[in-house]
Design a protein around this nucleic acid. Structure first.
Lengths: 218, 218
DNA sequence: ACCTGAACACCGTTCAAGT
DNA sequence: ACCTGAACACCGTTCAAGT
């Protein structure tokens, strides 16, 4: 293709689409993005310094979509709404959570988001230190659950479509070990995972942390 | 080298050492493990099916080192001791946390660990559902913090040893953005990260979740 | 049974060369 | 200013061949 077509925005847009098509994060490559753009890989290196910079821009584009809750609302409602929004976006871009882990939160949008999260708590009377660790905890819980969810879905796909005996073996093994070694709580956990959606589990975890926070408010 | 030397145990032992020498998880490769073992890469494929299986065995070897707390102790003490032990092991093998994320917990040792964690809570009167989500939350908080810690250390190293302007730029940018956009809580967070160790932060997060759990016990 | 060597299909990154 | 093509140094994985 001739020149004078591409800009950074178009590259990031396609990169997010290409990431969406990928089965895993290691499946995602700049060469595939370039192919989808009908362009040589090396072209990307004129617009971006390296892969890390592209991932950074992708993460930024995703976080920019997060809608902040109304500040008039009660603080627990604000927290729940905010992270519910983030959860929904992560579900839309299933690999976005990994993107956040792989990337440094040095963009303004991401810093503002962290700042706002802490502000919600301190405005409710929580001390700065507790608010900081609570924000971190909620963030890790969210990304952890989404990554888990994604891995599970990938496995489910691989097992059904490609009949991957290896992965099917793992799932079977977990159930069997739980039974033969009488890991009763493990068995209950497996049931729970099937009974509640990842979002419901996240909400319960968030509630738990909020319960803890309430003891630090006054 | 001639044959009749290697076994799975030796490979995993060296793999953990090679992982320890790696600056990042993507830096770690089977080819490097093979070189350290003075053996051809393809040799590893006689002992293991693929890379995933090797990672799985590595994760298992690490978790096997976790010491379980005395069951006579009070439940909050048991929880704190258990996760303090896990934290210390993760600090010893800085990339172990990523290993856990990349890997399915289908080994007996890991399942037993999860089961035991939940058991500590249910024995204290916490319902099965809350105990399950709390165990998950604590686990994600721990791995999240350790991964963060590791990334930070890697950056610090790269900045000082290789004068990586790119990474130094990120750190500087965060401070600057926090100042110019008056992200006061963000500034306080940066201070706190320097003031408290990752372990101390984890302990505070754990305390928060325990505070939440106490409301579910009776 | 255990290991090697070569090959394959992938990566990210660089750089001289084109328009 | 923007893009290509070829090259480089890496990957994981397979497989015929050696001992």
């Amino acid at each position: 293709m001739a020149h004078r077509k591409l800009d950074r925005e178009q590259i990031i847009e396609q990169a997010l689409k290409t990431l969406g098509k990928s089965n895993s994060f290691s499946d995602f490559s700049l060469r595939k993005v370039a192919t989808d753009l009908q362009v040589d890989v090396s072209t990307l290196y004129w617009h971006f310094k390296n892969k890390q910079e592209i991932l950074q821009a992708m993460a930024e584009a995703i976080i920019a979509q997060v809608k902040l809750p109304n500040q008039q609302l009660e603080w627990t409602v604000q927290l729940k709404q905010l992270f519910s929004n983030i959860f929904d976006i992560y579900e839309q871009y299933p690999l976005a959570a990994i993107l956040m882990v792989e990337t440094i939160p040095s963009s303004l949008v991401r810093l503002q988001l962290i700042d706002r999260t802490i502000a919600i708590m301190t405005n409710a009377g929580v001390d700065e230190q507790t608010a900081h660790i609570a924000a971190t905890s909620i963030d890790f819980l969210l990304t952890g659950l989404v990554i888990d969810l994604m891995i599970e879905n990938r496995f489910r796909q691989q097992i059904t479509t490609q009949q991957d005996q290896n992965l099917a073996g793992h799932v079977k093994k977990i159930r069997e070990l739980a039974q033969t070694h009488h890991l009763e709580h493990m068995q209950a956990s497996i049931k729970m995972r099937n009974q509640f959606s990842a979002k419901q589990q996240f909400e319960k975890g968030l509630d738990l942390i909020i319960d803890g926070l309430k003891q630090h408010t006054h």
